[in-house]
């Protein structure tokens, strides 16, 4: 089983990297870019076959290490 984990900055947390990307897109001539927020994407492969157990494990991994919940939100999906 594989978990696809997305980690994003919470609303209200400034994202200077996102701003820099937005600026660069504008410089390349892409008009109408209202906002850019940068995040992380992590894939974790588990040997667990029970979905509920896998969910518990991923949940704990996100809280303990993968995301810093002071500034970040996380979401994930499990795929076979």
């Amino acid at each position: 089983m594989k978990a696809r984990i997305r980690i994003t900055l919470k609303n209200g947390v400034l994202d200077p990297q996102g701003k820099a990307i937005q600026h660069a897109l504008g410089g390349l001539g892409f008009a109408g870019v209202e906002d850019v927020r940068q995040g992380k994407y992590i894939e974790v492969k588990l040997n667990e076959t029970d979905e509920a157990k896998a969910k518990d494990a991923i949940e704990k991994m996100c809280k303990d290490l993968l995301a810093n919940t002071v500034i970040e939100n996380y979401s994930y999906e499990l795929v076979a």
Partner: peptide
């Protein structure tokens, strides 16, 4: 300690 150190605003 509470909080977190983020990327400098100037990058």
């Amino acid at each position: 300690l509470p909080g977190v150190l983020m990327r400098n605003a100037s990058l």
